[in-house]
Design a binder for these strands. Sequence first.
DNA 1: ACGTTATAGTTTCATATGAAACCATTTGCA
DNA 2: TGCAAATGGTTTCATATGAAACTATAACGT
Lengths: 155, 155
Amino acid sequence: MPAKRKPAPATAEHAPLQLEHFLPYRLSILSNTISQAIADDYQRRYDISVTEWRVMSVLARFDGLSAREVAERTAMDKVAVSRALARLVEAKRVSRVTHDDDKRRSVLSLTEAGWTMHDEVAPMARAREREVLAKLDAEERVWLERILDKLQPVY
Amino acid sequence: MPAKRKPAPATAEHAPLQLEHFLPYRLSILSNTISQAIADDYQRRYDISVTEWRVMSVLARFDGLSAREVAERTAMDKVAVSRALARLVEAKRVSRVTHDDDKRRSVLSLTEAGWTMHDEVAPMARAREREVLAKLDAEERVWLERILDKLQPVY
DNA sequence: ACGTTATAGTTTCATATGAAACCATTTGCA
DNA sequence: TGCAAATGGTTTCATATGAAACTATAACGT
């Protein structure tokens, strides 16, 4: 019986992914790092999760959406949205009423308290974004904007 | 008792985040979309999770790492790595032996079977990356590379 | 050498998550 | 109309995840 062959070294015939240049991998790490930094700013202070904050951000921008529309806009799945909304409504940060014409749909808005929190958190989020972008010069920022536009189908 | 005031419209004094231009948000959606597309290629076929694939990718590139080093390189936490390794070792895709000098450490490598799988999945991952990058022209690709380098501390 | 502190890795426990099943309502169409 | 199919949303269940506690070994200071 032949001795167990030692796996080939990571270089030769195998062509491993060069992770440090592999786009999906780099994006994932970058994105998680940034989102986590922002989350650290508000999670403890307001007892709110990333998904909840994301829902609030969308409602701040687009008042009166249904849960499905929130899910579309946030690229979250509807279960996650449903649960985030349950917590947000419970905490009285979001109000929910039934749609007049279609009783399946809900009509969602930030409450006064929701707006108050939003107005405290949004500047912190923007500040973090600025920190990141400060690593780039003006030209690079323009290219980044342009590249993201091309990579990303906007609704 | 005053009527409950209707929350201000999403435009006026509140300055909601413009999510469609907010970098952390856009990165998050882009990253998830791409990673999921790649995962769809291999998850069912090989019964392997994203974290497990990530561990395998790193070991393909850097043979003989310890679990902690894998965690560092993948930006995953050590619990996630520990669990991924348990599954990978069980499935005989990764071999684990104890370090000679330091018995706390493990020394990790892909097995033959691990390499076989790797060599099937890596080209699919690269193909997905190419699909994404195909949306950019050559100049934009150069800028993207440069921008990621600046935003991202490389180990 | 010996006790203290640090490190590698695993287990536990509580929470987060997603797929599928589910309920209610609406839409499409015979 | 009336009934099948589609849609909005929630619940259930099984799995994934992270923080903290834990085990084992190593390093450090005296």
